[in-house]
Nucleic acid binder design. Sequence first.
DNA 1: CTGTGTTACGTAACAGTGTTATGCAATACT
DNA 2: AGTATTGCATAACACTGTTACGTAACACAG
Lengths: 189, 189
Amino acid sequence: MARPLLHDETLRRTLLDTAAAKIARDGAAAVSLRSIAAAAGTSTTAVYSLFGGKAALLTAVLDDGFASFAASQQQAASAGLEALGRAYRTWALEHPVLYGLMFGGSLAGQVPCQPTPGAAEPSIAPLFAAVAAALPAASDDEIASMVGVVWGQVHGLVSLELAGAPAAGWSWAAAYDAALVRIGRSLGR
Amino acid sequence: MARPLLHDETLRRTLLDTAAAKIARDGAAAVSLRSIAAAAGTSTTAVYSLFGGKAALLTAVLDDGFASFAASQQQAASAGLEALGRAYRTWALEHPVLYGLMFGGSLAGQVPCQPTPGAAEPSIAPLFAAVAAALPAASDDEIASMVGVVWGQVHGLVSLELAGAPAAGWSWAAAYDAALVRIGRSLGR
DNA sequence: CTGTGTTACGTAACAGTGTTATGCAATACT
DNA sequence: AGTATTGCATAACACTGTTACGTAACACAG
């Protein structure tokens, strides 16, 4: 017997990148496995060998997204909580489809893909640290609850903006600014 | 010539209800037009006669959802802003899939259905009124921005909870309570 | 009551989807 | 060099939304 060929890492990255590009352009539901494989210069079975199927490929794209998002958050972490909030919105607006897949309703089963459990945690770790630093006297429960509040506020505004919810009489950017100011004030003292 | 048969309103409601039930149980992407038609005791072409296709049927289900949600909000409106917030979460938790379709990323093109423009506005009209009543001295812009902030906060927490986002160290219910208290405090005076 | 124009919708076909069984070429070790 | 082992192309499968066709049912005119 002989040690067989390993998976081709180059093809894996090519598939991942073309899939991510197509998904970002047309949305996850409008992208077919055949078109991804054809654009990558291979066949559908390669996806099954390398990932396991369309859902697994989407999941891999999603995990890549979480890594990119977490890196963006960690880079902004040193500049303070407000910078963290701005980086959050910036990344989301730059990757609208990906953000929707990561934190939107897709987890609820619209598209059969879900990130590996715990994939989102590194993304909010900087927020957790910032809140903890701003509230040195708070208990763990208070800090945790506050993280939920801040994350919910930031995600909610970004999510509504991305979903195209009607901003009748206000702009989402203005609401976002106001929310960041309110958060900063209530955490400052 | 003769005035022809009108569309069968009974069949329309049957299709709408079975579609809504199936979507609520299995998610929008997992439901096929054939299964809906079969469960309703008819054929797929009936859906095309009555609605125009699968996307149009989903849109109709969605519009029904907006009507139900708006009714729930308007009913809670008289009981104050905090009651409005609780009713918001209650409805969303009772209709998780529908809520995700209505306000989640589906508008961004994951599933090819979109509510009629302006469908969400009656839903937030009570919130708008409550904020305006709580801030009688505020300008229109300030009120509008505050509506965005509050809506974003409430939607964000509900959306993250529904998406199954990890609540590492807190519960979404507790964060929601804390957020409502914070909103009430900052609007109270 | 009969006839006719108009419509609702069942049947069946179509193009396209994700998935899978089969087979062949390429490889890494003996 | 030989051979076991794998990657992946080909082609079939079951399924999807959509649509052409045909039939049965109806509202009105005579």
